[in-house]
């Protein structure tokens, strides 16, 4: 019988293989290969033999590649369309403004990669060399990797289930020739699913500095952020802080500020207090942000006098601060 009142308990989600049966106990569990759910699973013998309790073979390769990457930051949101990719791009540009630092952006949103468009490199392609796939460079010190560079046309839909997405993420981490990086920013798709679990499990050993969470002020977005914070706690990732995006809109004609997405339950600031995560700041909605993203130019450079730019730079400073500790 189904226990309908509560969701099915999540075992140790990180150790469940992507092609597992419904109630897989997890390959690293004591019960691997022996639980009821394992009967009939094609991998039962492998699990029962005990070899799976060892680590994923890709992990040492990822670790080797990530040895030269100083800081690894995830950008997460829970809800879609709140500005993860835009924020990631701004963060990348801001870090790269320092000519002595090297920044990489990895777009693991496999079904809807926006990073190439936002950075203005949508028509580029990935080249492979003996040392791996080379990232596409926006400028000398800002490299990017996204599934968007691998599609024959922008129209093509990537219709992949979990295991294929995980395979590609592993490749992004072990086969891309990132070189020496000061910052690796990982832009994620909305939700808490395959992509997130994969990136966390592959990077766990190399260490993730933390996650920046993005939200918009309305409760519908906040409830997804609560889930995302819960996810970070479950998998043991530090939350660097919460950014409230699209917070208030200033009419270009009468200069009155109005709230498009009303913070009916106190917005991001209140949520950050309740959940005890740092609140990094609020970015007002400026139509030019979206436009810059569509044209693939840096909003921070184009409109240095916008209040949104000030807010962004302030937040980026706070993130840098957080990374020092």
């Amino acid at each position: 019988m189904l226990a309908v009142q509560s969701s099915v308990p999540v075992p140790d989600a990180l150790s469940v293989p992507s092609n597992a049966p419904e109630h897989c106990p997890g390959t690293e569990s004591e019960l691997a290969g022996k639980a009821d759910a394992c009967a009939g699973c094609a991998n039962q013998d492998i699990c029962a033999s005990g070899v799976t309790r060892g680590p994923d073979p890709a992990i040492p390769l990822v670790r080797a590649r990530m040895e030269t990457v100083k800081h690894k930051i995830l950008v997460l949101s829970g809800k879609g369309g709140v500005g993860k990719s835009t924020f990631t791009a701004q963060l990348g540009w801001a870090f790269a403004a320092d000519e002595d630092s090297q920044t990489g952006i990895m777009d693991v949103d496999i079904c809807g990669p926006s990073i190439p468009t936002i950075l203005g490199i949508a028509s580029e392609q990935v080249h492979s060399s003996s040392s791996g796939w080379s990232p596409v460079y926006v400028q000398d010190n800002l490299g990017v990797m996204s599934v968007g560079f691998m599609l024959p046309s922008a129209k093509d839909a990537v219709m992949w289930r979990g295991p294929k997405k995980n395979g590609l993420i592993a490749q992004f981490l072990k086969d891309v020739d990132w070189g020496t990086l000061d910052y690796l920013l990982v832009d994620t798709p909305p939700g808490t699913s395959d992509e997130h679990l994969s990136i966390v499990s592959y990077l766990k050993e190399s260490g993730i500095d933390g996650a920046v969470l993005i939200t918009t002020p309305q409760e519908v977005a906040l409830q997804d952020v609560r889930r995302e914070i819960d996810f970070c706690r479950k998998v043991g990732i530090r939350v660097l802080g919460l950014v409230e995006n699209m917070s208030g809109f200033v009419c270009p004609s009468c200069k009155t500020e109005s709230q498009i997405f009303k913070p009916s339950t106190g917005g991001g600031r209140r949520l950050a207090e309740d959940m005890q995560v740092p609140f990094l700041g609020a970015v007002p909605l400026d139509p030019r942000i979206g436009k810059s993203a569509d044209y693939g130019v840096s909003f921070l450079d184009e409109y240095p006098d916008s209040p949104a730019t000030t807010a962004y730079l302030d937040i980026i400073d706070k993130i840098k601060d957080q990374l020092e500790h």
Binding site: V8, V10, S18, T192, S193, D194, H196, E228, K234
Partner: peptide, 11 residues
């Protein structure tokens, strides 16, 4: 309401 559903594809 803050519980996250962290599921991979098969689930």
């Amino acid at each position: 309401k803050e519980d996250s559903v962290v599921w991979r594809g098969p689930k």
